[in-house]
């Protein structure tokens, strides 16, 4: 569906160099801190910036050969950009009808009514949640095969976030080939949605793993100085000095459960894993 190989983009104080793949039918999360390179990766995929090296292929087609018809098959949500805030939903309906051959006006209007979005109010006067819902509705209303969503959950309260995730689940259920690439700096937002995760830091992919594996096989070991000294470190990916001793990240939880029954092993959520991957020592 989407393949990025050695994508390079160099700025004065930042360099991006990453590879990743989004398979058909997958929801892939791109997670990392603010400034890690998520938005730059998205901009490169969307052709908004020139690239200094590497390759981006969408629907088995090089980005350079992308035409208007190809772009119609992608739904976009950008965290810091959208239709002019001076327009209303009523204004953008004819715009979308003319931009997308497959724009499903009936579905769009049903969803607008469902989420109680005002059609005559200027978008700039919408709440954060309403703006995001509208952006996602636009992205899923023209039968896109691939959604590219940059930080759609940013600034949302729990209810709005759950509604958004539900919209995305419904989109995925519509067609088994539908795929989503979604980014967030808070991965727990995406834990229940994504099939796999890429973790990006300082412009580089530092981890790629299926969500199931992350949640079942990764764990945090909490050990004191003495336990740490005697610990088999073969499957320790990262470690960090703590007040009580050390916390260690492993991708072989069962190995330590079997061999070190006396140490504390916490399942840990994805946010904690990210913190360890970025802040911990190798």
């Amino acid at each position: 569906m989407l393949k990025i190989e050695n994508l390079q983009k160099n700025y004065k104080n930042f360099s991006l160099n990453c590879s990743m793949e989004i398979k058909p039918g997958y929801v892939t999360g791109l997670i990392g801190q603010n400034g890690a390179g998520k938005s730059t990766t998205f901009k490169a995929i969307l052709g908004l910036i020139s690239i200094d090296g590497g390759m981006v292929r969408v629907f088995d087609k090089d980005l350079k050969d992308f035409n208007v018809e190809d772009k119609e098959k992608i739904g976009i949500v950008l965290s810091d950009s959208g239709f002019s805030g001076y327009l209303t939903i009523k204004d953008i309906i004819p715009v979308l009808s003319n931009l997308y051959k497959c724009f499903d006006k009936e579905f769009f209007m049903d969803q607008i009514r469902k989420f109680k979005l005002p059609i005559d109010k200027k978008i700039k006067d919408f709440s954060t949640g309403m703006k995001v819902k509208l952006k996602v509705l636009i992205a899923i209303s023209h039968n896109a095969d691939l959604l590219i969503l940059d930080e759609p959950t940013a600034g949302l309260d729990v209810l709005a976030r759950d509604e958004l995730l539900e919209m995305l689940r419904e989109y995925m259920e519509k067609d088994e080939r539908h795929s989503i690439l979604i980014s967030s700096h808070i991965s727990s937002d995406l834990e229940t949605l994504c099939d796999d995760f890429y973790m990006i830091d300082e412009g580089k992919i530092i981890l790629h793993e299926d969500t199931d594996v992350l949640l079942s096989e990764y764990a945090l070991l909490k050990v004191d100085e003495k336990q740490y000294a005697s610990l088999d470190k073969e499957y320790i990916i990262r470690f960090k000095k703590e007040s009580y001793g050390y916390s260690c990240l492993t991708n072989q939880k069962q190995y330590y459960i079997d061999n070190n029954p006396d140490i504390i092993i916490e399942k840990g959520n994805i946010d904690e894993l990210i913190t360890m991957m970025i802040k911990g020592n190798k």
Binding site: L48, E69, I76, L78, G82, S84, L99
Partner: peptide, 14 residues
């Protein structure tokens, strides 16, 4: 206005 071009050029236009 408000970085609107980023979204605009992600739409099916060249």
């Amino acid at each position: 206005f408000d970085n609107g071009n980023a979204f605009l050029f992600s739409l099916p236009i060249t």
